[in-house]
C-alpha cells in the first residue's frame, strides 16, 4: 500500500479520460469498458492511498490535511462518474467529470500534506471537525456537480440551437435534466456550505476558549465568508419565482460554482506556498506549534 502514490491514480484518471475522449471518433463498447475498468482501478488505488494516509496521520482522510481533504472530494466525484457511467454507459459523463477530477487530484501536489496542528493535537475528539470537513466536502462536491452540469447544458444547448445531430459518442442528458441537476446541486450545496461555515465559526470559538489563537480574521475564513455571500445570492435567485430562461440560470450557477471552485483551490495552494499570512487551515502555524505540547510535536514530527 505504501507504493501507491497520487501519480498512480492520477495516471489512471488521465488514461480513462483519454479513452472517454476517443468517443469523439465514434462509440466503441470496448473502449468504454476499458475506460470504466481503468476508472475502477484508479478508484481502488485512490482509496488505498487515502487509507494509507489515514494510518500515517492517525486522522480520518477528511481531517488529515488540505491534500487529503481535496483527495476525498476527487474520490467522491470518481464514485459519481462510475455510478453514472454504470447506469447510463451511452452518456458522456466522463468527458466532463474526469477533467475536474484530474484538476482536483493534480492540485493536491501543491497543497499542504502536513496534518493540521489543531486537529492533530486532539487525539480522539474530532466530532465538530469531522462535521465541519464533511459538510464542506459535500458542499464542494455539489458545487462541482453544478459546475459540470452547467458546462454540459451549454454544450447541449449550443448543439440544439445550431441544429447538429447527436454525436454518436457524445450523447448527453436532455436540457431539462441538466438544468434540473444544475439547479438542485447548487440549491443543496448552499445549506451544506452554510453548515460548514457555522461549524467552522463554532470550532474557532471552541479552540479560542481552549487557549488556541484562532482568529476570525483568518484570510481563509474571510474568503469562504465572501464565497458564502455569493452562493447565498445565487441560492435566493434560484428559489425566487422571477421568470428567466434556463440558460441564464445555468450561466449564473456556472459562474458562481466556477468562481467558488477556483477560489478555494487557489486558497489552498496559496496557503501551502505561504503567500497568505498565517491561517488556521495551513496546518503548520508557527504560533500554534509553539504552544503545542512536546509529545504532540514529536508525533507530528515538527520541532517544538
Amino acid at each position: 500500500m505504501q507504493r501507491v502514490t497520487v501519480f498512480c491514480f492520477l495516471a489512471s484518471y488521465v488514461v480513462a479520460f483519454v479513452l472517454e475522449l476517443s468517443r469523439m471518433l465514434g462509440r466503441s463498447r470496448i473502449s468504454s469498458l476499458v475506460a470504466f475498468g481503468i476508472g475502477v482501478a484508479g478508484l481502488v488505488a485512490h482509496t488505498a492511498y487515502l487509507f494509507y494516509r489515514s494510518q500515517q496521520t492517525s486522522l480520518p482522510p477528511l481531517l488529515g490535511s488540505a491534500h487529503d481533504w481535496m483527495l476525498v472530494l476527487a474520490w467522491l466525484l470518481v464514485v459519481f462518474y462510475l455510478f453514472l457511467t454504470r447506469i447510463h454507459p451511452e452518456l458522456a459523463w466522463g468527458m466532463f467529470l474526469l477533467p475536474l477530477v484530474i484538476v482536483f487530484v493534480a492540485t493536491t501536489y501543491f497543497m499542504n500534506q502536513a496534518p493540521n496542528t489543531l486537529v492533530a493535537a486532539e487525539r480522539a475528539k474530532h466530532g465538530w471537525e469531522m462535521l465541519h470537513a464533511t459538510v464542506l466536502v459535500f458542499g464542494m462536491a455539489g458545487t462541482a456537480v453544478g459546475f459540470i452540469t452547467g458546462v454540459m447544458y451549454l454544450v447541449q444547448h449550443r448543439r440544439l440551437k445550431t441544429r447538429h445531430a447527436t454525436h454518436l459518442g457524445l450523447e448527453m442528458p436532455s436540457l431539462a435534466r441538466l438544468a434540473q441537476t444544475n439547479r438542485w446541486s447548487t440549491i443543496i450545496a448552499f445549506p451544506l456550505w452554510t453548515l460548514g461555515l457555522v461549524t467552522g465559526v463554532a470550532l474557532s470559538f471552541m479552540k479560542s476558549s481552549a487557549g488556541a489563537s484562532v482568529a476570525l480574521r483568518d484570510p481563509f475564513v474571510i474568503t469562504v465568508g465572501v464565497l458564502w455571500v455569493l452562493l447565498a445570492a445565487v441560492f435566493v435567485r434560484l428559489l425566487s419565482n422571477r421568470p428567466s430562461s434556463a440558460k441564464h440560470v445555468v450561466w449564473l450557477t456556472l459562474c458562481a460554482c466556477g468562481f467558488v471552485l477556483l477560489t478555494l483551490i487557489g486558497l489552498q495552494i496559496l496557503t501551502k506556498s505561504h503567500v497568505l499570512p498565517e491561517t488556521w487551515h495551513a496546518g503548520e502555524i508557527k504560533s500554534e506549534i509553539r504552544n503545542l505540547k512536546p509529545e504532540i510535536c514529536n508525533r507530528l514530527e515538527v520541532p517544538s
Binding site: 447541449q156 448543439r159 440544439l160 445531430a165 447527436t166 448527453m172 436532455s174 431539462a176 435534466r177
Partner: peptide
C-alpha cells in the same frame, strides 16, 4: 431524427 435526436435532447 426529429423526436430522438432533438426532442429527447430538449425534454426529459
Amino acid at each position: 431524427v426529429a423526436v430522438s435526436d432533438f426532442g429527447q435532447s430538449i425534454f426529459d
